[in-house]
Write a protein that binds this DNA or RNA. Sequence first.
DNA 1: TATTGTTATACTCTATAACTATA
DNA 2: TATAGTTATAGAGTATAACAATA
Lengths: 145, 145
Amino acid sequence: MPQDLGPVAGLVRLTFLIQTVYAEVGRGCDLTAAQAQLLCTLADEPKGMADLSRLLGLERSSLTGLVDRAEHRGYVVRRSDPSDRRAVRVALTPEGLTAVGRFHDELTVQLQSVLADLPASERKAFSRTLGKLTATVPDTFTTPV
Amino acid sequence: MPQDLGPVAGLVRLTFLIQTVYAEVGRGCDLTAAQAQLLCTLADEPKGMADLSRLLGLERSSLTGLVDRAEHRGYVVRRSDPSDRRAVRVALTPEGLTAVGRFHDELTVQLQSVLADLPASERKAFSRTLGKLTATVPDTFTTPV
DNA sequence: TATTGTTATACTCTATAACTATA
DNA sequence: TATAGTTATAGAGTATAACAATA
């Protein structure tokens, strides 16, 4: 019965489902969704506020508070950028790295279980299509270093 | 290059993409994402606060404020439930129906364009898989009456 | 002048806990 | 007692506008 609602409704429903899982896993790691996304974005390397603004799609002023709170919780630090005295580099602390590692692992488990009932061939085809659709989306789920 | 990140990363990226489109379309209709979801959930028929709480995955107390703001903007009204004097029925106003119609149409256009580059057969297979994955997700994107 | 980031402000969203009224 | 909904409170997220410092 829910099969023929069309791809658009399917996209909306899938997004709702993944958001819910994302938020639940975050809560289990004591992270809000926004914080988890921030930490994931920093998983590969430190970034400036302007980079983060572009990658996360947030205004720089919104980011100030987000980074403030993450810093206050000990997950990130602001470092000065030696090559530009206006800029800061936001980097994960060891605690931040641990948190994002846990988040990444648990989210992987949960999302794999969302896909678990699909036949392997269908999962593979689905994955390939996902890759096409998101080719231009910034990667906010890199495996932490 | 982004094709072989695996299905889990693909799901996260797709969700990020759809959320962004959802929020942008909402802004174009002067609706936040939460408000748009509320109105979409009411598109088929009025519902009580407890129903909405379950469908949207929000605490009833959170919903009070969400409905307050939507009511203040003229999109919904609270009506008393003749069969239970504790309960209210939240219903779309004509303005709310118009707003959700505009939102639904524009989101449909934008999401169709996300899928537009897929070959028809691939889009069909993708849609079918979406249906399977979201069979248990409450429908928050019914076509408005 | 343009860019980097912050501050000030306001609004929205959400949760927990305590409450009222009705079933 | 259990359920429907609200209030009080607090914290988080986000945007716009104005600003300071540096490029």
